[in-house]
Amino acid sequence: MSLEVLGISVLWIFLYGYLIVAAIDFGAGFFAYYARITKREHIMSKLISRYLSPVWEVTNVFFVFFFVGLVGFFPDTAYYLGTALLIPGSIAIILLSIRGSFYAFGNYGPSNNTFFLFLYGATGLLIPASLSTALTISEGGFLEVTDDGVVFLAKELFTSPYSWSVVTLAIVSVLYISASFLTYYAHRAEDIESRVILRKFSLFWSAPTILASLMVFVALREHNPEHFQNAIGIWWMFGLSLLFFMIATFLMYKKKMYGFSFISVMLQFFFAFFGYGASHLPYIIYPYVTITGSVVNETMGTALVIVFIAGLLLLIPSLILLMRLFLFDADYVKGKK
């Protein structure tokens, strides 16, 4: 495998990892807030906080890993996205900062403040919306390269149907992924009341997720026909995604195998995400940056790959330990530890 394909695959895998863990986290924030204002928090919030407290920082590192890796493997993206994304990027950072710190203030701190929880819930939906614009911009049409540098065409972005379809998809997916996971977690915790509510959420958000995905496809055909054609070329990826969606919803509906149902949700997004990514290639930012044209020099690229492998050898056992202690330890999940 060539260096650039290896590099982008590694990054894409991490972005996928972030997508899943962050969606769980973002959605959980929203559900926690929702539970508070509908006076049902005694049921769900303990459950949510037992899962989130030990892992929120790990979630953030997934994201840091992705963008540091992107700039490392493909330094040109720093130049293009950096110049263009100052304001949207700053807004995303500020939202992430508010979320992370107010989570800690509210959760480890002394007071259980509804305002903190509101910030935490609201940012959970705004962050995916703002981060998804980076993907939208990578489709082309929103940047202009002039003699003075790269200019970001904000007005185009705000009036583009494609951009809004991506934002919608991002938000509903977050709620859907999160609800599916938390249903499973509640099931493990033998917390029936929470499970009943969360299962309803999960079913409620399943149809909008699929509708929003279709909308993205339709809008993409208008916006970037070349990418759309590539996507049709690997239609089976999206077909598999749909299949796993159906398995997941079926199991959820039948109240069976919540764990496998969540794994199916993960596979649903895996195939859609990798289908999207593969058909996006060779462009990172259409039409300016391609993976071959922007890849870092070979020495550095090789060094990054070596470090990456060494890093994984260190991280995977640690992550397994973390999951065994907090995710798969039945007593912890049930709140007995």
Binding site: V68, Y79, A303
Partner: peptide, 30 residues
């Protein structure tokens, strides 16, 4: 966002420790 030309240039040479740092964070966070 603020130093795009610097990162484009320096990324070629000094990306390694920046990348390693994320692993250190990861390890610590876990």
């Amino acid at each position: 966002l603020l130093w795009p030309s610097f990162m484009q240039f320096a990324g070629q040479v000094i990306a390694l420790p920046l990348f390693m740092e994320t692993f250190a964070f990861f390890f610590e966070a876990i």
